[in-house]
Design a binder for these strands. Sequence first.
DNA 1: GATGAATGAGAGTTCATTCAT
DNA 2: GATGAATGAACTCTCATTCAT
Lengths: 196, 196, 196, 196
Amino acid sequence: MENKAKPKYKLILDAAVEVIAENGYHHSQVSKIAKKAGVADGTIYLYFKNKEDILVSLFEEKMGQFVSKIKEEIERIEKADEKLYKLIEMHFRQLSEDPSLAIVTQLELRQSNKRLRFEINEVLKDYLALMDDILEGGMKDGTFQAQLKVKLVRQVLFGTLDEVVTNWVMKEQRYDLVDQARDVHYLIYNGLRKHN
Amino acid sequence: MENKAKPKYKLILDAAVEVIAENGYHHSQVSKIAKKAGVADGTIYLYFKNKEDILVSLFEEKMGQFVSKIKEEIERIEKADEKLYKLIEMHFRQLSEDPSLAIVTQLELRQSNKRLRFEINEVLKDYLALMDDILEGGMKDGTFQAQLKVKLVRQVLFGTLDEVVTNWVMKEQRYDLVDQARDVHYLIYNGLRKHN
Amino acid sequence: MENKAKPKYKLILDAAVEVIAENGYHHSQVSKIAKKAGVADGTIYLYFKNKEDILVSLFEEKMGQFVSKIKEEIERIEKADEKLYKLIEMHFRQLSEDPSLAIVTQLELRQSNKRLRFEINEVLKDYLALMDDILEGGMKDGTFQAQLKVKLVRQVLFGTLDEVVTNWVMKEQRYDLVDQARDVHYLIYNGLRKHN
Amino acid sequence: MENKAKPKYKLILDAAVEVIAENGYHHSQVSKIAKKAGVADGTIYLYFKNKEDILVSLFEEKMGQFVSKIKEEIERIEKADEKLYKLIEMHFRQLSEDPSLAIVTQLELRQSNKRLRFEINEVLKDYLALMDDILEGGMKDGTFQAQLKVKLVRQVLFGTLDEVVTNWVMKEQRYDLVDQARDVHYLIYNGLRKHN
DNA sequence: GATGAATGAGAGTTCATTCAT
DNA sequence: GATGAATGAACTCTCATTCAT
């Protein structure tokens, strides 16, 4: 078992992603997650307050890593439009590489109640702030138009990425998601850059 | 009572929108909808196969009207970029004018299970086809670039509209949604048009 | 079935008394009560808010009848000491005639939590008030000493009755409870009456 | 820490009384008692067979002391009616001085199941025997009537004391319990003594 | 067509107890 | 002797759907 080494906390979160991706949010009983994780039902509650807490933690954990990785790569890049491209490309790449996670974030987690979705939004703020940074950087250095409304542009960007990924998931991942990055970047960048 | 005239079918759908907007998807029991509609629980099942059918019907009905109205307006317009603007503006306007419906479509209906969401997507196809028409028209007459990937652009457009409306709903509709139409159109159009 | 005539509400309460007397408070699941009553589990919740509500209702219903019957008999009697005797005799007689109820009130219901016990005490107030009436009547007409502390005497009386019945229940009802009435009355009355 | 000296056995029993008085019987988990006692959960099971055993031991220990103290005092007294008074007074005094214990014995321990209550009754036998001794002594020496039924009188006495203390606990100990001793003794003694 | 009382399957969570260290 | 992480059985309540009237 590769599980011997992993702490139970991680073990349970990974099991949750798999179980939810397989069975859907509403058919993912705690007992199923426990079984997949190889622990007793009660053990779950030593690490999580309740079922919802598993989901929030799952999202925090995975989204945290997701954003960190993008941040890391972007810091090495100078130009705003290249940063933008990198963000798009890595957004697609990371979800591409973990299809279970993609199913969970794009479809299943949205079935949670409003309160949980607000908590999820809280976690997303970090990501949105990263987008704002790129946009503001580009506006300053002249890559993008100066009078853009950052909050609105960020909604265009996030909405686009989210929809493109959701589409890919609902089409059962039958095409390559990362391939879309170039075109998406072109459309968005064209919308933002200066034109003569 | 204004309800005397309305057929029970409509009565129930309207009640469903109100109940879901007020209580949230997961607290909208069939009995609550029946009460609000002024009919017995059992009566619901004379008009709808099951609870899910209420939701699908609700979406079909409302979305049907939603799309028809936009179609109607757009047919009168010649230029592709103006059609595009009209679509954006009316998308925002219609949801602006029916906040209960906005809450239901943007937040509550997404809590339904995957199967229901596939059915909802089915209903959306008509709307997406309309977008495709506008885009293809613009590509033909030279308003937009000729080599655009329609399916992808449609995702950018729909994803953007959806995100902007969702944002507005989650911000508790504290600002004017229709005011955003001009800027959103500018960004999208800029992404699509020819540049010298 | 003799049950056809009875309304479900009564049916459930009667079933509850039997089930609790047989299995003890902590082994009386709602499903057991439903089965004994011949209804579905869910039906219970059409008539009672929750499990605790069954118990409170049970106590209110049974205790209400219990006290009414005693009241009725006592009204016909003039002398305070005879009223006192009647109360004691009927207290014993009624519990004697419904051993299941005796088990439930003397042993099982006391296992409920503090909150429920406060509600039960509320129901008892009527009975205690009846005791007060008898005592005050006797103090006025010279049957009992005039300077008695009614609240304390009532505790002596109730505590005594309660203990004697509990003893009888715990001794598995191997002797006749009503036979004790004469002696208990003698002891209590002796404690209260005037002495030369 | 004053606890260093105390053996774990005592430490756990004292913790149990406090925890139960504070939280109520049903919210007094073994882990809470362990924490209060400053030992690990598992340690409890080195000293007690199971949770119930804690409660029985608690009652044996405390009740043993309770009865011994009363016995001790009573041996010094000659007259039966004075012995009776002493018993009443000390019953009240001891519970008065340890309100946590009073809550536990009068309210919380009664929520235990029937089997535990039989075991508790076993422990009480010693106390009841002491009452019997006083009563029989008084019957012999002419203080009390000769034809009293000792077992019944003992129920009157115990039932009275128990109810008076319970009342005091439920009234949140807002008055002085020991003050009641004189009146209670008067009522009981009057019921027992010879009258001319 | 309309009613609404009755149904019964289904799941999150607690906590006494164990046992490897 | 002492620890405390892990176990897993057990139970209330909700609500979509049915069907006799």
